[in-house]
């Protein structure tokens, strides 16, 4: 909990800036954050801290929602009933994570509708990884193993994020993500140890998902716009490159035990660094996908918009019903 809460209970930086109070609030905020105290919704916080969190949490929530699409693409074609059940449960979890994160973002004074509008209009982003297509069943496994694996590496430190509601959301989300990741690994293992065709399918998926997964950690440290401030505010705990390295170090032995190779001839254990060296990432591709030119950007956002627009009459009906039944008191609203 941050020590200073102004009388108004919410931040009013314009007023605060006018006097010593501003400096005092800011100093206590910085001190509290530095002391690893948790910031809670009613605490004073700098406007930029609030804006930065809204941006990151919204992008995180959007990624869960858009991330349903590449996997849901295979629900109707899952090759066994057990795998179908696992996949359905996973996609359902993702919708739940999205809801959870939107709620956490709402504690900062925004609303889910507002955030969804920004997603639909392209004003807010989602993880670039979901702009890649799922072309075979093995992609479902590769997403679980690599994409969820990268997400977990990114997200576990957020469980100690300075903003309380975000940190608490992540504790819960990370538990489920770890479970998904194990399932993805296990799916790939079954394919890798299966028929020749299944093994080839698994290898092909890993070949296509490896580099995009490394890009999930964001641009290199010297090109990352928000990193320094996010780290000072304890929103972020480690740099993009640190987390990427951590992920590579975890993934390399896992690939070996899967009996699959990673599509990077430069991967090699570096005794001196105590880490794996790895090849150069194609940053031109990364920026291009981020700009909207990835293989599925258009498709993903169109599906989201269409679902939202075609669902408008359903949401209107629910509102109209709620209105009628609360104003007349004919029936208690559920």
């Amino acid at each position: 909990m941050v020590a200073v809460t102004p009388e108004t209970g919410t931040s009013s930086t314009a007023d605060a800036r006018s006097g010593d109070l501003a400096d005092q609030l800011r100093a206590s905020f910085d001190a509290a954050v530095a002391a690893e105290e948790r910031v809670e919704p009613r605490d004073w916080m700098p406007d930029e801290y609030r804006a930065s969190l809204v941006r990151q949490m919204a992008q995180h929530a959007h990624s869960e929602i858009i991330g349903m699409q590449p996997e849901a693409n295979w629900i109707t074609r899952a090759p066994s009933l057990r795998r179908k059940a696992i996949l359905m449960a996973k996609v359902q979890d993702e919708a739940g994570h999205g809801l959870y994160l939107y709620s956490a973002a709402e504690t900062l004074g925004t609303s889910r509708d507002e955030l969804l509008d920004k997603l639909h209009s392209g004003k807010q982003k989602y993880s670039s990884i979901f702009n890649y297509p799922t072309l075979t069943w093995a992609d479902v496994g590769a997403i679980g193993w690599l994409v969820d694996g990268a997400a977990i590496t990114n997200q576990v430190p957020i469980c100690r994020c300075s903003y309380g509601p975000y940190a608490r959301a992540m504790v819960r989300i990370c538990k489920e993500e770890s479970f998904h990741q194990r399932q993805g690994y296990e799916l790939l293992l079954a394919l890798s140890r299966g028929t020749e065709a299944q093994h080839a399918m698994a290898q092909d998926a890993v070949d296509r998902w490896w580099w995009p997964s490394l890009m999930m950690f964001g641009p290199p440290d010297d090109e990352s716009a928000h990193s320094a401030q996010s780290m000072a505010w304890r929103i972020k705990r480690h740099s993009n490159d640190e987390l990427r390295q951590r992920f590579v170090d975890i993934a390399v032995p896992q690939a070996e035990s899967l009996g699959l190779t990673l599509p990077d001839p430069d991967i090699k254990w570096n005794e001196e660094r105590g880490h794996h060296d790895f090849g150069a990432i194609d940053w031109a591709e990364f920026w291009d996908v981020l700009k909207g030119n990835g293989p599925c950007n258009e498709q993903r956002i169109n599906q989201r918009r269409t679902a939202h627009e075609e669902g408008a009459w359903v949401r209107d009906a629910a509102s109209a019903y709620a209105e009628k039944h609360t104003s007349t008191g004919r029936e208690v609203q559920a």
Binding site: I65, M88, A89, Q92, A307, G311
Partner: peptide
Amino acid sequence: LGEWAGHAPVLEEEVALANIALDLLG
């Protein structure tokens, strides 16, 4: 019901329809 995943009118229905689909699959 599995075909609805990613197409529902509101996020809560993504959860609900998938939930029912899972029960039925079970």
